[in-house]
Simulated scan of single mutants.
Amino acid sequence: MPDSGDDIVIRTSGLTKRYGPETGVFDLDLLIRRGEVYGFLGPNGAGKSTTMRMLVGLIRPTSGTATVLGYPAGTRRSLRGVGALIESPALYPHLSGRDNLRILAGYASVAAARVEKALEEVGMTAKADVAFRAYSLGMKQRIAVGAALLKDPALFILDEPTNGLDPEGVASMRDLINGLRRSNRTVLLSSHQLTEVEHLCDRVGVIRRGRLVADGTVAELRRGIGEGGVSVTVDSPERAAALVRELPAVRSATVIDGELRVAVDPSEAAAVNRLLVVNGLEVSELRRQVLSLEDVFFDLVEDQRPTGPEPVEVVNR
Rank of each mutant, 00 (worst) to 15 (best):
R274S: 06
T67Y: 08
R251C: 06
N100M: 11
H94E: 12
D166T: 14
E310G: 07
A263F: 08
D3W: 05
L180M: 15
L91R: 05
V25D: 12
K151N: 00
M124T: 13
I256H: 10
S13T: 13
L28R: 02
S88G: 02
N279Q: 14
V244N: 03
S96V: 10
A134S: 07
D129Y: 14
R174L: 08
E116I: 10
L85T: 11
R287P: 01
E22I: 15
A240I: 15
R11I: 04
T51K: 07
L155I: 11
I225G: 04
N279G: 08
R53L: 04
V301A: 11
S191R: 01
V315N: 08
R245P: 11
G216V: 07
D265S: 15
A113M: 04
A219G: 03
G258H: 09
Q193N: 13
T23I: 06
A131E: 09
V315L: 09
L91N: 08
A111P: 01
T62C: 02
R11M: 02
L55P: 04
E246V: 01
G39L: 02
P93V: 08
E282C: 05
V204T: 09
A271Q: 05
L176M: 14
A154K: 14
V145S: 01
G210L: 06
D202I: 10
R114P: 11
E285I: 08
N100P: 07
D202S: 03
P72H: 14
R33A: 03
A46Q: 04
F26W: 12
I157F: 07
E168V: 02
